[in-house]
Nucleic acid binder design. Structure first.
Lengths: 199, 199, 199, 199
DNA sequence: CATGAATGAGTGTTCATTCAT
DNA sequence: AATGAATGAACACTCATTCAT
């Protein structure tokens, strides 16, 4: 039915305008400073329309978070077994690059669930789930190659911590560094620290 | 004048009651959910008195941040040269333990300046300064021992990222881990990844 | 034109679907909590269609009110002369029963114009007219039989008050009573109080 | 302590300004049309201050309702045993007059809990309690004197219904009647209908 | 020094009504 | 005749900050 398709289309477009706008505002202002008003202005829709699509601000962020979590989990899961030689390091380097691309887009959302005392439990939940899934992926890889005295259980979150926060410093806070060099270095450090890489 | 002395003493006591209370509330509720009202209730003083001591809420957090920055910088600076052998790893381990003690106390403040889009520029400033000082300390140590292909300039923030976030996961978010084992592992990973440690 | 006939038929059906739904929602939620949204959902029609049939929410309630007023007036007018003996009481009893049947259906509408400060003047008007007509009916009957010191002018509204509110308590607020006994009692009290009934 | 007394006094004054204003606005506009904004304007205080004293609009109405319930219950309880002779009627007449005075003041509140589908459960509760207490008082009196075929259990609410609604018509809706005559008539009707009065 | 009542700007949310399809 | 997405005015509530006592 064309009419059904039309209305659905309009609705879908508005929805994605809202999510895009939400993403932009989140990136600009951060989670706590984001106002519904900012979002609807950015989406060029009226205030009331927002509530046709989302129960409240948190609801939109949660929708973004779910989208984001899927993307990040898939990206992280894209890492294959890491050998101790130079090709292991090269694989890590490529994988980090893919992650950095994802982070450049979804960083604002990741940060919203990383914040201290996330006010919305549903959002915290999405974050906790993503955290668990990501560390599980990493744990599996580390377990295959960890050097002595490195427990994959503990190494996985440490590795995630290092990567996420470093991206945050560099990609979001705009600390000026040569990005190529950064990825090179991180690949090296991770290879040596977590995978027994021999440089 | 004795009276002046008395009031001064009273003033000092009120001031520290406020800072203690601020610390507690910050830990409990997090930066954004902290209300002046919570602080004055915790300090058992009146609402108006708050503004005799601090220009606004941010002013108190800034004061806490400065205190905290001093402590963290000193702690981090307490790391001596790190050798590649097992005693280097042991030194790192002890130093991490001292840092964890500091973090247990000052974590809430550290997180307030680590948050995405810190609203108060003065607070952001304190955080940026602390970041710079800490990475400078680390850079110096790493420079003395970095393995090939590890640029101290880039490794320092990565190391800080890993330590701070891991403490955050474990000490603040209450992810259950054996803390002794965690410190052991971190010491090993850092030793290997940043200081050319050989297992 | 057959097509016109068809559409007319369709229009009538939609109209009555709306009025039925309005009645149901009014009964469920009460006048102030009734939302256009609830009505169109109950009628299973679209939001916009509502405004093809009614100027606004008040317009629908007014239409219901007119329907209801006709019914109640006719019911009340159905009371014949009331004698002072036991058959007068029996007549009252039957008449009250007919009224109770009407109230069970139209109660929600009656209450909407009985409320304190009815916002819509047109609705208030319908209520005032019904009030006037009903009290006129009652006045005529009371005038034929009122005991000494009972002015029909004043007794009529008092009698209406007693009946309407008692039905409200019992039929709408669901205060549990034996309905037969209630009607018996009311018939007796009204007979004695307003018609000089003797035991 | 004078200072404590002063502040308390100020607070009390504001509180009563709010309750007075609430009463006035309720009388003017009715429960549903009453806005917090109207109340604070009438009380000549700021919007925010309202929330220092009441959790929300309902909270204020509830406070008024409790005050009102006490008054009405006491007034109704003021009716002594009613004899069947003319002095019984005279007693009723005086008692009704006292009730009318109370109603003139508290009518708006009484109506707020009498409305169809009271939205605030706490308010409904106060109303239900008042209803129960008042009918209990009436029941006791009626039981002492009820004519045959009048069950006090059922007569009490009917009597309340008649009195409350008649006052409502006359005192609030401003139907023009001679108030003295009205009270005379009501006394007679009640005396005959509920207490076996013999005219 | 200390108090706590008062302020008002800022923000979120609801819902009757309109209008392009 | 019917649809349902969009609108925006109206209203509730919070909280940092001020100020008379």
């Amino acid at each position: 039915m064309p009419s059904e398709k039309v209305t659905r289309t309009r609705g879908k477009r508005t929805m994605s305008k809202l999510m895009d706008a939400g993403m932009r505002v989140l990136a600009d202002r951060g989670y706590h400073a984001t106002r519904v008003d900012d979002i609807v202005k950015a989406a060029r829709i009226s205030h009331g329309t927002f509530y046709l699509y989302f129960a409240d601000k948190e609801d939109l962020v949660r929708a973004l978070a779910e989208e984001c979590a899927e993307d990040v989990k898939a990206t992280v899961a894209g890492l294959g077994p890491v050998s101790q030689g130079p090709d292991g390091r090269a694989q890590l380097r490529e994988w980090l690059e893919r992650w950095s691309v994802s982070y450049r887009h979804y960083g604002p959302v990741v940060r919203s669930w990383m914040e201290d005392h996330v006010p919305d439990p549903a959002l915290a939940q999405v974050g906790a789930k993503a955290f668990a899934d990501i560390t599980a992926s990493l744990r599996a890889r580390i377990a295959e190659a960890a050097p002595p005295h490195v427990d994959p259980e503990l190494a996985a979150p440490a590795m995630l911590a290092m990567i996420e926060r470093t991206f945050y410093y560099v990609l979001s806070r705009g600390i000026a560094v040569d990005e190529e060099a950064l990825l090179d270095n991180m690949a090296t450090m991770i290879h040596r620290g977590f995978f027994g890489g021999t440089g």
